[in-house]
Design a binder for these strands. Structure first.
Lengths: 223, 223
DNA sequence: GCAAAAGTGTTCCAGATACACCCATGA
DNA sequence: TCATGGGTGTATCTGGAACACTTTTGC
């Protein structure tokens, strides 16, 4: 079945987590031409026998030292044609978004200097990767509005302030505290625990917990 | 750059239009094994030098005799891995959805008996094509709620009843006439004309027209 | 007692829903 | 005049937006 010569098939990964009250994305520094020394999304070629998803897992491990189990939600984004602007020539890139917490990319010799950057303060990027990140950010913005997707970016037990801060980091705008709590609690996506978080000279905050740690749609939309 | 052996890259097209108050999808009858004689989405292999979109256009023309200019909205859907259930072995299929009106697939010797089927009454399909159609239908259902996408399924001049019938066909549920009109008119996606449609022993219906014949988001969501 | 974050309710407005009759035409 | 689909308005309800003070703790 190799009578057909296909375009080159690649996968690129948009790995995001929250840190310092902002949404961050994992980038690597390219070791080779083209775009040597520039930042880019971790990505690579899909080889025979791999699914796009398993390829994403393998490449993420080898290029950025990120273990799959740290990703709590993985979703395919879009498939980009890379004719224009890609010096390697014609190709097709399947992109995945992965969300998690405390992702610490390893800095071994194998990997390519992986590090997280705030999505609102990205360096200049190779290829059309700035577009891909913008697309992922839009997808996430819309997804947190009608699903519980944000569970993937928060610890298992979290305060309502942490939850609100997470929404604000993703949506890039401030939210009203009272309305946020009233509305989110009415969605039946989380339940309270009897645990409290004590951290400083102020009233302790009650800890909450998601009902499901898998993606589910909420009845009403959030925003 | 052929040091890497990629999975086979394919494109499959979900072409839809309205007919007989129902949403229909274009299928072909497979001429060859595997699944010879079964119905399937028109699709084929992407060859070197093609983008996924240009491949979709070429294949649609050759397998189903559908000219591109009849498609008023084309959108990439999702990229499916076809390891399981595909006797040809491992592959990746990029799927596109195309919407139009009065698409008359040609029945020349080149094409593979293309014909439209109501999405609610599909024959048994080859591969995982039933899933792909269900995915496209869901995408369309959600898209008509927050965009003017339905323009692609209606004539340039249309009555509000036609518009409502189109929504009902896509959403698979009845809508209240007064509320539908009030709400849709408030979205500022269409404007009235001074033309009327006369067709039978009843009051003529005013014709309306979309403001834009390109995809645009509406401020509020429809449903 | 004071600084710091947690927690809490009401008012107002816009949009959603439910619902039934008159209008214009062709036969 | 009658059959057929076109066209219209109101009352009610629910959810969204705006907005400020009290509570609990550590120091």
């Amino acid at each position: 079945m190799t009578a057909y010569q296909s375009p080159i098939l690649m996968v690129d990964s948009v790995i995001m987590q929250l840190a310092n009250d902002s949404l961050q994305v994992l980038l690597i520094k390219r070791a080779h031409e083209p775009f040597q020394g520039m930042y880019a999304l971790p990505g690579g070629y899909i080889v025979a026998g791999e699914t796009t998803l398993s390829s994403h897992e393998r490449i993420l491990g080898s290029k950025a030292g990120v273990e799959q189990q740290l990703l709590r939600l993985v979703e395919q984004l879009y498939t980009f044609d890379t004719v224009a602007g890609d010096p390697r020539g014609h190709g097709v890139s399947v992109t995945y978004m992965g969300l998690g917490i405390e992702i610490n990319p390893s800095l071994s010799a194998e990997t390519q200097q992986p590090a997280f950057f705030a999505v609102n303060a990205l360096p200049r990027l190779a290829y059309d990767h700035a577009e891909i990140i913008a697309y992922a950010h839009e997808r996430l913005k819309s997804k947190v509005n009608y699903t519980n997707a944000i569970f993937a970016l928060l610890p298992v037990y979290f305060t309502l302030t942490q939850l609100q801060t997470a929404y604000e980091a993703i949506l890039c705008r401030p939210l009203d505290k009272r309305n946020f709590r009233k509305k989110f609690l009415s969605l039946d996506l989380i339940h309270e625990t009897n645990e409290y978080q004590r951290d400083g000279a102020h009233r302790p905050a009650r800890l909450f917990c998601f009902n499901e740690m898998r993606l589910e749609r909420s009845t009403r939309s959030f925003d």
